[in-house]
Amino acid sequence: MIVKRYLKIWLLLTIKASQIAFSSRLGTSLFLFGKLLRFLLFLGFILLIAVKTKAIAGYSLWQVVLFFATFNLIDNVTQFFLREVYRFRAYVVSGDFDYILTKPWSPLAKSLFGGSDILDLPMVLLSVVLIFISIIKLEYITPSGIILYLLLIICSEIIALSFHIAVLAIGILTTEVDNTIMLYRDLTSMGRFPVDIYREPISWIITFVIPVGIMMTYPAKALMGLLSQTSLIIAVSISFTFLFLSFKFWRFSLTHYTSASS
């Protein structure tokens, strides 16, 4: 019952957010064009490198494309659902967060899912198409690989959700959101390419401390049959640990909310 109610609210807020986005057709078209342009230019860049060098860090062209497409899928799905986080600072600074706190539904749910960004949907679809093409080109993909891939993408989204909850908590404590969220975006962008290209200790840090590797590289590796069972267990454990810690941090931040702006 609660899930149904939350889904209904999410749908209503997403429709409203989409109406706002489409109120300026020029801006919407330009943003969409920009996202598409970035996707295509990066893909072109990867193709250029892979064709000239035959392999990047031992990965073939279609393997690198699969890493890139998986990164885009996870990144765009995250942005689609969690766009409200980018608007959170304004609520804290203006005092509107008090109003959210008084509503009869979870302030965390509102701050995370209070209006999805419809402009990310075309990019999600494009990523899915590219993943399908890569799978066909790679030929050796197995059904168990696909199941593990989907499981690890869920883990990636859990880690992404945890990071976004942490960003909200930092926002409450310091009113700093914009740069923190963009820093998260830059860090995850390191996963555009397989994390194997980074040297130690950076490779270790972005796999286990800031688990970009687990988020972006592990799913594609599992699909290609390159991931060990231990890595799989680590991925699931880390994602749930991050989620648990982020909830704790969120609750801690709420106890320190001063409502100073209202």
Binding site: I49, T53, I56, A57, T174, E176, N179, T180, M182, L183, D186, L187, S189, M190, R192, F193, D196, I197, Y198, R199, I202
Partner: peptide, 26 residues
């Protein structure tokens, strides 16, 4: 200051991504 320092950290992260990519490619 915090804003600016965060901005510079972002620039460094962006740089490291490209740096290591080229190190792996070449």
């Amino acid at each position: 200051r915090l804003n600016f320092v965060m901005w510079r950290i972002r620039v460094v992260v962006q740089f490291l991504t490209i740096y290591f990519l080229w190190l792996a490619v070449l």
